[in-house]
Design a protein around this nucleic acid. Structure first.
Lengths: 138, 138
DNA sequence: GTGTCTGCAAACGATTTGCAAATTA
DNA sequence: TAATTTGCAAATCGTTTGCAGACAC
């Protein structure tokens, strides 16, 4: 996809085959996958793909802020290529993560907390996670 | 401490020596420690203490909601015995976690999101984490 | 005494590292 | 061809598991 190519280039990331494949997978499968899921899904399409490359690529993407690492599981990190403001709801039964967007207030709530931070503290990133049970599992 | 004894009993947790020691450590050292920190700090005082017991105990405490697991590091889980509403700020240079309380609004902001959840979704727990640089490290 | 709790050692699994081959500018 | 990227294998490290001994009601 030309579109993804541009996003990577704009982030100063060379758009290799593997990187484009991983980025496209994240954009087109909003399932907040972990490394293993990405690897096993793409492996048939790119037989030489290695886990190492998936790890390297995700780290590179996160450093350049075109994806976010979702720290919601106990053991592994999951990834999300949607960088617009939203929170994550994890169903503890089916383990799916749902994106929740705030309809009323488009301003990140973290702004409410800026005044409460000690002076001199600089925010790079923030994330809200919710755990519970989804309607299908209840 | 009698006080901690009561908290454990109220949560239906038998207050063994090890459990009391771990709970007291968390209450009196608000450093959001990981398992290894708890273990190495308490080990000299309780020479037979094992990592397994630390893991078991923390899991038990979390299930009974007298502590929370803080998912803010990439690799390990940290723990906090303060269950009042606040958010966590992690300094990416010194790796310390700072508690931030909201002075203006004591109501958990998650309430703003309740209307945005699909119907039938039930919240058990939530957490907001912020990453950045603290004033000392800047 | 019976059920619970503890702790050792081994296993497990996610992630990192070292390095050589392949790729690209 | 020089710098970057990839990918294999081994290592690392946080966490879990199996099980036997210790402890508590």
């Amino acid at each position: 996809m030309k579109e993804y190519n541009k996003i990577l280039k704009d982030a100063n990331i060379r758009p290799s085959i593997q990187r484009l494949a991983i980025f496209a997978f994240l954009k087109e499968n909003k399932i907040h996958p972990d490394v293993e899921t990405i690897f096993t899904q793409l492996s048939p399409l790119y037989p030489t793909l290695s886990r190492t490359t998936v790890y390297n690529t995700l780290q590179l993407f996160e450093e350049n802020k075109i994806i976010q690492a979702v720290k919601i599981d106990d053991d592994k990190i999951r990834y999300d290529a949607d960088t617009s403001y939203h929170i994550h709801f994890k169903c503890c039964k089916c383990n799916r993560i749902f994106d929740v967007y705030n309809k009323e207030n488009t301003e990140p709530f973290i702004n409410n907390f800026k005044n409460d931070l000690p002076s001199g503290f600089v925010i790079n990133n923030f994330q809200t996670n919710v755990w519970g049970v989804c309607s299908e599992c209840h």
